[in-house]
């Protein structure tokens, strides 16, 4: 028995049907078709599936999709402003902060949540903000530097 779910995704209204008990990750990927959200563990321990729900970083793999009805969700697919990259995306590129790229969407969302509430973070703030996101390739240093770089650039925030 499928339940209708309607919410705002990256500023647009979307709707889909989901099985009872479906998690937000599956609904975003397979229901709505937003493949920018990735799944790493499906048990809430790696941070790969991080999305923002009303600006707060959440693990979509352990978030009940039904609880998201009517709420505002942001994913990596919505980071660009038209053709312009978000400062975080530019900074990740410049700092070569991705190798396999699989953790990158979740990492970007965790970093965005930080910069949206704290535009001038310390290195410790950045470490704390991405502390729930596992990266197996980069050793974290370029990611931390990228987030600090993005904070320093004087640009509008995309919400």
């Amino acid at each position: 028995m499928k339940t209708p779910i309607q919410f705002r995704l990256n500023g647009e209204d979307v709707a889909t049907f989901a099985d009872g008990g479906a998690n937000l990750l599956d609904v975003l990927r397979e229901g709505v078709g937003d493949l920018s959200v990735k799944g790493g563990c499906w048990q809430g321990t790696c941070g790969t599936c991080t999305v923002l729900i009303e600006g707060v970083p959440r693990l979509s793999c352990v978030t009940l999709a039904e609880t998201c009805t009517g709420r505002s969700i942001e994913t990596t697919a919505g980071l660009r402003h038209g053709a312009d990259l978000h400062p975080l995306q530019k900074a990740f590129m410049e700092r070569f902060a991705a190798q396999c790229g699989y953790c990158t969407p979740g990492m970007l969302m965790a970093a965005k949540a930080l910069l949206d509430r704290n535009p001038n973070p310390s290195r410790e703030d950045v470490v704390e903000a991405i502390g729930g996101n596992i990266c197996r390739c980069t050793g974290y240093e370029p990611i931390i530097n990228a987030v600090l770089d993005a904070a320093r650039t004087d640009s509008r925030r995309h919400t």
Binding site: L35, L79, M93, A98, G101
Partner: peptide, 21 residues
């Protein structure tokens, strides 16, 4: 030189095997 796949990585568009519906 910038990686050929970097833009795909930061936009979440690099295709992994499971990115097909």
């Amino acid at each position: 030189t910038q990686r050929q796949d970097m833009l795909g990585h930061v936009t979440g568009t690099s295709p992994y095997y499971d990115d097909h519906r």
